[in-house]
Simulated scan of single mutants.
Amino acid sequence: MASSYPKGLATRQRLVDSMLELIQLHGYHGTGLNTVLARSGAPKGSLYFHFPEGKTELGIAAVGLAGDQFAELIGTATTTASSPSAAVDALVAELKGILEASDYQAGCPVSSVALDAGSENEPLREACGQVYDAWVSAVSSYLSTFGLKKEQAQPLATSMICLVEGSLILSRAYKSTQPLDAAAGTLKMLMKAVHSEANA
């Protein structure tokens, strides 16, 4: 199928997609640029043409793409679901699908980068922080539709993102979706409490 991107942008996108896929499987430090080039099919010169700063710049682009993809999952789940519980189910079903399709090898690339390189690479740490901010903001906005004030919604949204991220790590470690199921149950209880308080 022909790419919808102009040629130069299509090459750049293949590099970012490949970097993201490899980070999910091997972490940031476990992903070499030669492997990214081989997976993407892009010529070596194109990497430094599109990413003059090399691996860090490519990693930041991959983290940004991961952020956009998960934000889209959140957005779809919260706008199409018939209830808060259904929104949780929809989101968790997508995450389970990713884990199971990769035989529990593919985790969250943002947490992988944050844990792998965030303490030594400030631009990467900032990129991860910006993605988490965007996710928290998206969940916080959803919670505010139930009448929560920002000062209530923000910490609750942060806790919810922590639940999801932590459950993904445990699911990979256990090779089981049980931690995600447990997190889903807790998220539903939190949503029910929010809904009850808003309608009290």
Results as ranks from 00 to 15, higher is better:
Glu197Gly: 03
Thr145Asn: 13
Ala61Arg: 13
Gln105Gly: 05
Pro123Tyr: 01
Ala193Glu: 14
Ala101Cys: 04
Ala114Ser: 12
Ser167Cys: 05
Gly107Asn: 06
Gly8Met: 11
Gly107Ala: 05
Met191Ser: 13
Leu22His: 04
Gly59Lys: 03
Phe51Met: 05
Gln130Val: 01
Glu151Arg: 12
Lys175Leu: 03
Tyr132Gly: 01
Glu151Trp: 08
Arg39Val: 12
His195Trp: 07
Thr186Gln: 14
Pro6Thr: 07
Ser18Met: 01
Thr80Met: 08
Glu122Gln: 14
Leu25Asn: 04
Phe49Gln: 14
Ile74Gly: 01
Gly75Lys: 07
Ser119Val: 12
Glu126Asn: 11
Ala62Pro: 06
Phe49Lys: 13
Ala106Phe: 00
Val164Ile: 15
Ile60Pro: 05
Thr177Ile: 10
Asn121Lys: 05
Met160Thr: 02
Thr35Met: 07
Leu37Ser: 09
Leu115Gly: 00
Val194Glu: 09
Ala127Asp: 05
Ala127Thr: 02
Leu91Thr: 02
Leu47His: 10
Leu47Glu: 10
Ile60Trp: 04
Glu94Ser: 15
Ser140Arg: 10
Lys44Arg: 15
Cys108Ser: 12
Gln152Val: 01
Gln130His: 13
Ser40Phe: 00
His50Arg: 11
Pro109Val: 01
Thr80Phe: 06
Leu22Asn: 05
Ser119Lys: 12
Ala93Asp: 15
Ala93Arg: 12
Lys149Asn: 12
Ser167Lys: 06
Thr158Cys: 07
Ala182Thr: 14
Glu120Asn: 04
Gly147Glu: 08
Asp116Gly: 01
Arg14Ile: 04
Ala38Asn: 09
Ser112His: 11
Ser144Phe: 04
Gly147Asp: 09
Glu72Lys: 13
Ser4Asn: 10
Asn199Gln: 15
Phe146Ser: 09
Gly41Ile: 06
Gly118Asn: 11
Ala114Asp: 01
Val164Met: 03
Ala77Val: 08
Asp181Gln: 09
Gly97Ala: 10
Gly185Lys: 12
Arg14Pro: 03
Ala184Ser: 14
His26Val: 01
Leu20Gln: 11
Gly185Leu: 06
Thr80Ala: 11
Ala182His: 10
Asp17Met: 02
Asn121Leu: 05
Ala127Met: 01
Ala42Met: 06
Tyr142Phe: 15
Ser83Glu: 09
Gln130Cys: 03
Gly54Leu: 08
Asp89Pro: 05
Ser119Met: 14
Cys162Phe: 08
His29Lys: 13
Gly45Val: 12
Ser141Ala: 15
Asp17Thr: 10
Asn199Lys: 14
Thr35Asn: 11
Leu170Pro: 01
Gln24Ser: 02
Thr11Ala: 14
Asn199Met: 14
Gly32Glu: 10
Ala71Pro: 03
Arg125Met: 10
Ala101Tyr: 05
Gly107Val: 01
Lys192Thr: 12
Ala62Tyr: 00
Met19Tyr: 00
